[in-house]
Design a protein around this nucleic acid. Structure first.
Length: 503
RNA sequence: GCCCCCAUCGUCUAGGGGACUAGGAUGUCAGCCUUUCAAGCUGAAGACAGGGGUUCGAAUCCCCUUGGGGGCGCCA
């Protein structure tokens, strides 16, 4: 067994959590659980301008829905709290002061306007863009003058001017940057809030994080963090930069809003959208864990216990991956089919209630739903697919549409009148209303009339469900019930006759 | 523009010098099953980006090219 790891997921409430972030969270969670360590949730809310009020709730809801539990976090507490960065400001300020005192950082008095001007000039002259470190070289007198002016300031890291930094990434191996490429990044903003760079390093150290697992967009700021760890005199954690998930088109990484797939359908990208769209959390978990990582060379469907057992950060494939949307549809269907009937019904109820306008308690009591459930189970890719498959059961009246739809292929309307009459007669006399009896009776009728089974079945389907495509016929009839089914057949017959007359 | 990361079937992946005539899955196509639609079963097509090395031997190691991704904010 590996030594217990402390990993964390640190979302920022500046927006909702997308599946790329959710996948990183899954990896961090899996590794903590695999090593028997702890998983920590930390909120990085140091950007006061971009704060989105309900983002945090949505993020937490989503993580809980995925059943990622954390051992320490804003809502559960822990020995290293608080776990919300805006409540830890004093720590960052102290840390920044310390760096300034020791000469690892300095106060910069440049205004945003001055910096913008500088960048413009750099662009115009095709120079390298970046802070020119003008405040790094200020003499004590100049500094005193700026302070006396009452100018506000930020704290910047005094990055080494020469040499290079190398750090080890568990997924990618050694990564080296020349110090010349690095910026004197801002650590503490004028409003007293830390930037990401200061806050992560201070918190990860403070919270004893052993493995920093985050998206690959952070890889280019990792050298900054390494310098910060050195400046503080702290040991480096182990880094693991997760590959990003690209749009299905492969153009750019996944961002906000639903995505268009090549076949014209759309897929959601925000974690909180998945529940309402009928995806199962265990399916999404399995699916997301399989992007950039695989259990072995042949297993696709596995539960989280199995994933925990086999997971290792070093097995993550470093290459970016497109979002394989079709595979999720398939996998969600697999998970739906693995549900017991009781569980399927339970999970279906909220969706049917929402889409059909029937109260949940009523659906829970309605045995017709339980009867039809086995018949629709293998037809569902998402829980939301159920409503259009069963709506006829709960409808007061069926719109059969064009009466011609009652007429099977290779059959005339007149013959269909005959067929329907016989069906009604047969069903009126059937001794019991169960699938087996109905099938025997209706197949017998077809044979008697010298018809193919489909010629008898399809008018029934159309009359009872109003659809060309519906769940298997006998289960459908049983679910609808004898009286309703017969009534719908009689209505259909009447409409067909009326239509023939009018021709 | 500069820096960093990456590169196996359309897509997600297995592979970490000989076990590779490159495995699985999805998607596609065909057949079977069949009352519609599914599901299921069977089968087919389908990849080591290109070029140089290293080696007896390279999908696997090195270099270059190409292509993709990311970063270059008082945003995370």
């Amino acid at each position: 067994m590996t030594t217990p790891a402390r990993t964390r997921f640190a979302p920022s409430p500046t927006g909702y959590l997308h599946i790329g972030g959710a996948r990183t969270a899954i990896f961090a969670w899996l590794y903590a659980r695999h090593t028997g360590g702890q998983f920590i949730l930390r909120i990085e809310d140091t950007d006061r301008k971009r704060f989105v009020p309900d983002a945090l709730d949505k993020i937490i809801e989503g993580l809980r829905w995925l059943k990622l539990d954390w051992d320490e976090g804003p809502d559960v507490g822990g020995p290293h709290g608080p776990y919300i960065q805006s409540q830890r400001l004093a720590k960052y300020q102290e840390a920044a002061d310390r760096l300034v005192e020791q000469g690892h950082a300095y106060r910069c008095y440049c205004t945003p306007e001055e910096l913008a001007e500088m960048r413009e000039k750099q662009q115009a002259n095709k120079e390298k863009i970046g802070y020119d470190r003008r405040c790094r070289w200020l003499t004590p007198e100049e500094r005193a003058a700026k302070e006396a002016e009452g100018r506000s300031w930020v704290v910047r890291l005094a990055v080494p001017l020469e040499g290079s930094v190398t750090f080890n990434d568990l997924i990618r191996g050694e990564v080296t940057f020349n110090n010349e490429e690095l910026q004197d990044a801002v650590l503490l903003k004028a409003d007293g809030y830390p930037t990401y760079h200061l806050a992560v390093v201070v918190d990860d150290h403070d919270m004893e994080i052993t493995h920093v697992i985050r998206g690959e967009e952070w890889i280019s700021s990792a050298p900054l963090h390494v310098h910060l760890y050195h400046a503080f005199g702290w040991n480096l954690p182990i880094f693991a930069h997760t590959p990003s998930i690209l749009k299905p088109s492969g153009k750019g990484k996944i961002s906000k809003r639903a995505l268009n797939t090549p076949d014209g359908s759309t897929i959601p990208v925000m974690l909180h959208e998945f529940p309402e769209l009928g995806y199962l959390p265990e399916a999404l978990f399995n699916f997301l864990s399989g992007i950039g990582w695989s259990l072995d060379d042949h297993t696709e469907i596995y539960d989280r216990e199995t994933a925990i057992k086999h997971f290792d950060l070093k097995d993550i494939n470093p290459g970016p991956a497109r979002f394989p949307a079709e595979k999720l549809e398939w996998m969600n269907g697999v998970y739906i089919r693995m549900l017991s009937i009781d569980e399927l019904v339970q999970r279906l109820i909220p969706y049917l209630s929402r889409d059909l306008g029937v109260p949940e308690e009523e659906l829970a009591r309605d045995e017709r739903l339980r009867i039809i459930a086995p018949a629709i189970q293998e037809r569902l890719k998402k829980l939301t697919d159920a409503a259009p498959l069963v709506d006829f059961i709960f409808a007061d009246e069926i719109d059969i549409g064009d009466p011609k739809l009652l007429v099977p292929r290779k059959t005339t309307p007149e013959q269909t009148v005959d067929i329907l009459s016989n069906i009604i007669a047969t069903l009126e006399q059937v001794e019991s209303w169960d699938e087996e009896t109905l099938e025997r009776a209706l197949r017998g009728l077809a044979q008697e009339m010298g018809l193919k089974a489909g010629q008898v079945f399809s008018p029934i389907r159309q009359a009872v469900t109003g659809k060309k495509v519906a769940p298997p016929l006998f289960a459908t009839l049983v679910a609808v019930g004898r009286e309703t089914a017969l009534q719908r057949l009689r209505d259909a017959l009447a409409r067909l006759q009326a239509w023939i007359q009018s021709q």
